[in-house]
Design a protein around this nucleic acid. Sequence first.
DNA 1: TTATATTTGATAATATTTGACAAGTCAAAA
DNA 2: TTTTGACTTGTCAAATATTATCAAATATAA
Lengths: 96, 96
Amino acid sequence: MQSKFGTKIRELRETQKLYLRQVAPLLEMDTAQLSKIEKDTRQLKQEQLEPLAKILQTEFAELHTLWLADQVLDLVKDQPNANEALKSVSKTIKKK
Amino acid sequence: MQSKFGTKIRELRETQKLYLRQVAPLLEMDTAQLSKIEKDTRQLKQEQLEPLAKILQTEFAELHTLWLADQVLDLVKDQPNANEALKSVSKTIKKK
DNA sequence: TTATATTTGATAATATTTGACAAGTCAAAA
DNA sequence: TTTTGACTTGTCAAATATTATCAAATATAA
């Protein structure tokens, strides 16, 4: 399954009629990398999220949430007890 | 904060009056490593979970859940939007 | 002190991720 | 049907990150 993050940033880019070739250099990467990120075979680095949000003129928080969810999903998919583990983490986090 | 997983396996080991020196070789590691795992400066490999559950005579599922929760917590702690991301992942997972 | 258990730190060994580039596909225009 | 432009894919070396190993330090109890 395609990642939500990759799908989202591709949509944003296309909506704005930007080419990979235009966006990639702004993130200091080549088009191949950005393509892979959109197709979810590579991860965007966290520190590139903010620049990307600016380039795509969208909310950082939204992109960040999708990005983080992808990381977590990657970790827990195909794992038994995933739901229990997630629930436990939510509880732990709320305590702070 | 000490991880739940590390705390748990230490408790189990101590309850059974086992020394690191006794348990570590059963997992093909040295005591220093196991000590670090209990103190959470190093992660147990997933494939070592089942052997460890047997050694400590405890439920695999319980250990696995704690272990997985620790991995996820590591990823999302100190991240904004962590709760939203977790919620989203739970939803995604339930669909399968 | 001595003996035993655990912890810590340094660094070597491994594993993983990334960057860079070449070659590939695909669709549309000429 | 060739050319062009956009994107995709694979490879591989370099950069990073993680883990293993061992020695030394610390702790605890007798």
